[in-house]
Simulated scan of single mutants.
Amino acid sequence: MAAVYKGIFPALQCPFTDKLAIDEPELRKFSSWLASHHGIGGLVTNGHTGEVFALTGKQRAEVTRIVADEVKGKLPVISGLCCEGIAEAAEHAVMAREAGATGLLVMPPHGWLRFGMEQPNNVVDYFTAIGEASGLDQVVHIYPAWTRASYSFETLAQLARLPWVKCMKVGTRDMNKYARDLMTIKAADPSVTVVTCHDEYLLASMVQGVDGALVGFASFIPQQIIDLYAAVQAGDLKKAQQIQAWILPLKDVVYGGGEPTGGAHARMKMAMYLAGILKSPRVQPPTRLPEGDELKAIEAAVRNAGLLQRAAA
């Protein structure tokens, strides 16, 4: 049965042991907890939140294998694909398929952030090679409009028509282009779902008419984000505003006024540790955990939200 990419998709953190190896028992427990929430559309491994940059190809496949084995087909498991060239991307895509992934979250090669894509056909060729190699569904990760890896409306339409593309994770972070991106995708192929990835302003991006959200923040507060999306879907703006107001202090200590970054992911991992969701906040170097006043602010926000289970060291 084909996966339907709608609802809330948490991008999972990866728990690590004190030797910075993948903590399999903790990852299984975490995956099972997230999957138990009604309204979760699937689980996403090896996203930015999962510290994909710090993991080898084999480690990425191992994370996906563990999560896929734990949920046993009850939910789609989407594995992030973050590679620089077509050969590497095809290889990682096959590894993800063999590990049990349902689909791939395809990020643009990060060389494009510096040098651009040269030609729009480069993008289509990249996604086509991945699709032909793996046969897996694809979720297109759309990067912010200010980057050189931002996709034009024409390119988005071309991608939406590819047979492997089933969903687009829209992280435009320019509300004018964001609205046009959504319309462009749906005009090209109405069956392709669109999900927001704007962790830092969920409500504003949800009311544009999306099919859900794919965000790391949903691995910390899944129920609240599920409830926020349900309120938007029901047209209950007052309830949605109340939920967003509850989320705001946690958003502030994790993201501040910026976008998701390695530092933000470390702050969220610490908040999850304080809330008892993870048994350790360890992150892969060179990212560092928050300390001092920053740590105190996170602890206060978690306490005020009624989530505090353990005090900061």
Rank of each mutant, 00 (worst) to 15 (best):
H38R: 15
V52C: 11
L43D: 09
R60G: 12
H37V: 12
T49D: 08
G47V: 04
H37G: 04
K58S: 13
W33G: 02
T49F: 05
H37Y: 14
A54W: 01
T49P: 00
H38Q: 10
S32V: 15
T45Y: 09
T49H: 00
R60E: 11
N46I: 00
G41S: 05
H38I: 07
L34D: 12
S31N: 03
L55S: 02
T45F: 07
F53C: 08
A54S: 15
K58H: 03
H38T: 13
K58Y: 01
V44W: 02
G50R: 01
H48S: 13
L55M: 13
A35S: 12
T45Q: 09
T56P: 03
G39D: 10
K29V: 02
A35G: 05
H38S: 14
G39K: 07
F53L: 14
T56Y: 02
G57K: 03
V52R: 01
H38D: 14
F30K: 01
H37M: 06
K58N: 14
G47K: 10
A35W: 08
L34W: 09
F53G: 06
F53P: 03
S36Q: 14
S31L: 09
I40Q: 03
E51T: 07
F30R: 05
T49K: 00
A54T: 15
V52T: 08
V44G: 04
V52F: 11
Q59T: 05
F53I: 09
W33C: 04
K58M: 12
L55V: 11
A35N: 00
G42E: 02
A35D: 05
G57S: 12
N46D: 07
S31W: 09
S36M: 09
F30D: 00
I40V: 15
L43H: 00
H37D: 03
G41N: 07
I40G: 09
G42I: 02
W33E: 10
L43Y: 01
K29E: 10
T56F: 06
T56G: 15
F30L: 13
A35I: 01
W33F: 14
